[in-house]
Design a protein around this nucleic acid. Structure first.
Lengths: 324, 324
DNA sequence: TTGCATTTATAAGAAATCCATATTAATGCA
DNA sequence: TGCATTAATATGGATTTCTTATAAATGCAA
């Protein structure tokens, strides 16, 4: 038994309009085509649905009994299709993102809040993770995409540049580091340093930048969390090197930051996606919105995340900070 | 958006079997055909459902979200189709019948009981009605068919002979009528008669038979219900002329019956259906069963309803009587 | 009763769709 | 690097579906 939706639609049209000719024109087919469709349906189910002659078309008892069945079937089908259509037209679903803690605590909340006012049926699951964990979660399909540090070159992952995030020197207000004419690796190395844990992308970057400058980063203290590192700086244990975007260094009057005058003290923030993996439309929308929001502070325009220029992206960033 | 059931089935097959080739062979189509079907579906809904290359086929996030929707849709559809199939295979529904009171009180209950043991999902609505009311109810589609008296010749109604029902003379046990060599109209006319109401088919028949014999039926008493007529006979008010099948004349030891030896004192019981009107399969089944049950006492074999011969029909009749 | 108008059914050729075979391209694995 | 497997593509053919034209039936009106 191979009943078509078109056959069912034809049946309902004939019932609704009370005749083959009218129903056929409503369905935009010729009357003979409709006659055949109805006959096919009747043949398939082995039951006569209409008693018809040239003057009248009437449901049989069987037709009467089956009418509500077919009606419900078509209603269900059409509403399911409407749901599916909304899927592509109005983003919805759950977006799962793996994010570096600094980004998760920084600009992301404001971006999400903004996105959700425009797409209320989208929900988010944020997993903050350091360095390689972001990659792993993307690869294992635990998340739809990741926001991590650039420089990955895995064959199964695609990256999209988002922005740059400078590493800055964090020092106590009034510290000698603030008065130096230049903050370079050799100069910095002379102070005790509070560095991040070896597992973090920040530390990897610091190590690489020191190595590039012919030096080795030697920590006086190590911290896993940036807030801990900041506390150490405030306690006078040393100078920290942290992302300029890090929310943890804001809001304190007793510490200051300054850029580091060596190449390499910058990390590229990228969106990381599995190659050849289709995402929810909502995810596409969101990454688009994310990129648009940071337009003003993307590498091409020389900006980076800690810039507070006047544009949507920077505003979103500011909101994120306030929101925290 | 014109999504097919075949497309949905194809989608579910690919999901279930994890590959196009396997799914195609399960669907009894070629792999390229399946590829096209899936692409059609994706094009129709504007969403990619699988991430596929030559080595792996995996649901996209969208596919994962839509899978249960499609599953439910197919399940609903298939179960509806199974219901419809049962409609033709196992009779079900409500059969509405208009029946002469004598038939309704006589053989019908047993027939229905027997039919319902074999077709438990069929229910009955019995409307007992006299003479022309049966015709009217059939014509107005108040009932699926009627059981009435033959001789109707309406262009919009079909009749099927069921059996004959003799009219018999009902007289008190020991009454002189029992000793008559012949019970003919002239003889009967000499006794006071208890006749049925003018509206009944029995009375019409009696009037016609008397007229055919050159006489006029003159009632000493008239009754609307047969049980009343019987009571009148038992009270000695006269002789009644009633259908041999009438349940009201059975079970009494103080009355007796005998056939009337004139032509015309027989009514043909027929099934009456609207011409060109399709019935529930259950109705077709039931009328078939009805005709089969009365085979032994149909006009062709010279029998009639009051015969108690040894066959299914007669047994059903007997059951009907006991059942009352 | 006879034509008329309306409506469904049928016929046949045309259009569209769908499908199967053969082939290509891609990709993991040995 | 070659092999085996699998999905995508191309193409011609088969099937289905449709439209147009026509026939048949039926209620209605003259």
């Amino acid at each position: 038994m191979d009943v078509n939706l078109r056959q069912i639609r034809a049946f309902l049209a004939v019932v609704g309009l009370g005749g083959f000719t009218r129903a056929a024109s409503a369905l935009n087919i010729s009357q003979p085509a409709l006659t055949i469709r109805i006959r096919q349906l009747e043949d398939q189910i082995g039951l006569k649905l209409f008693d018809r002659n040239t003057r009248s078309v009437q449901l049989t008892r069987v037709g009467q009994e089956l009418l509500p069945v077919f009606q419900r079937l078509m209603r269900d089908f059409d509403s399911a299709m409407a749901d599916i259509r909304e899927f592509s037209e109005e983003p919805r679903g759950t977006i799962r993102v793996a994010v570096l803690p600094s980004f998760a605590a920084g600009p992301l909340p404001a971006l999400i809040a903004d996105f959700r006012t425009r797409n209320p049926r989208v929900s988010f699951v944020l997993k903050d993770a350091v360095g390689k964990r972001v990659l792993a979660m993307v690869r294992n399909d635990e998340v739809d995409f990741g926001i991590g540090v650039g420089g990955v070159d895995e064959p199964d992952l695609d990256t999209i540049e988002v922005c740059e995030d400078r590493l800055v020197l964090v020092y106590p207000q009034g510290h000698a580091a603030g008065d130096l004419p230049q903050a370079t690796v050799p100069v910095i190395s002379q102070f005790p340093l509070v560095l991040m844990d070896k597992d973090t992308s920040v530390r990897r970057l610091v190590d690489e930048a020191f190595a590039a400058a012919g030096s080795i980063a030697t920590p006086a203290c190590e911290a896993t969390y940036m807030s801990t590192a900041v506390s150490m700086v405030r306690a006078g244990l040393g100078l920290a090197i942290l992302p300029a975007s890090a929310i943890e260094i804001r809001g304190f009057t007793d510490i200051a930051t300054r850029p580091i005058d060596d190449v390499g003290f910058v990390r590229r923030i990228v969106i990381i996606k599995r190659r050849g993996s289709s995402l929810l439309p909502a995810v596409e929308e969101f990454t688009k919105a994310l990129l648009a929001a940071v337009t003003g502070c993307r590498p091409a325009s020389g900006g980076c995340l800690d810039l507070q220029v006047e544009n949507g992206g920077a505003k979103a960033l500011a909101m994120g900070i306030q929101g925290q």
